[in-house]
Design a protein around this nucleic acid. Structure first.
Lengths: 116, 116
DNA sequence: AGCCAATATATCGGCTGCGAAGGTATGACG
DNA sequence: CGTCATACCTTCGCAGCCGATATATTGGCT
């Protein structure tokens, strides 16, 4: 697993931090928690899930058949929760650093397009 | 330019939001603002700078020779500042979503490794 | 004088993760 | 009986990062 986590992977872990979900449910949940801004594609989702399971951050919780269709539920593991917490902290620091500098820019713009 | 920005690219923009910097100065600044956690490699830095200049998010401010060595200073453009702001907002939302769910986990763990 | 470290730039190849596209199967609905 | 929605999975190309490597100059150490 590469770290820093990319956005799709990060959101998958975040979604699973709520409750175990199956593939399609995960897509829906990520859609919801991102306010519709991120729609996972199957290729992204299953690739990411395979990697996450390999790395032990997620595991298959159980499978069930609903209306003839298999649902494979994935669950966040404890290491998965730790990685999510660590990555969240990293991002928080980056966000804070950027926010501080952006505030300074607004106060006294120094960009190419600044007021002449 | 791919969006979401990857961490090195994001930090380069953040560093340049403070003041124009040259390559090596940028490496030092990113080192500092990341608390030593991120040390840019030349390959990462110059690749990213090329892409950022191509995309118009950063531009060459000026060049100067200090002690016989060329320093090429890069400056954040206005579009660059906007992208940085947008990306920061995106990350803030993701951080908030993850934080909320992580808090819930701590209160009532539901992970594989939870208390038996 | 001779050498190594630090400053400063740049390039190349491999790896990884994402995304677009496409594929299979089942049940529901008209 | 065809189409849509659900649900799984695979393959391929691309973009960005990183390690390694290269080149040039200044300065310090011996």
């Amino acid at each position: 697993m590469e770290t820093p986590l990319r956005e799709p992977t990060f959101l998958i872990l975040t979604a699973l931090a709520g409750e175990p979900l199956h593939g399609y449910g995960l897509i829906a949940e990520v859609d919801r928690l991102s306010g519709g801004r991120v729609s996972l594609r199957p290729g992204t989702l299953y690739g990411a899930l395979d990697r996450l399971v390999d790395a032990g951050l997620v595991r298959v919780d159980h499978e069930e058949i609903v209306e003839g269709r298999l649902r494979r539920y994935y669950q966040l593991t404890e290491p998965g929760g730790e990685v999510l917490a660590t990555e969240t902290e990293r991002m928080r620091r980056n966000v804070d650093a950027a926010t501080a500098r952006l505030r300074a820019i607004k106060a006294a713009p120094r960009l190419s397009g600044g007021v002449a």
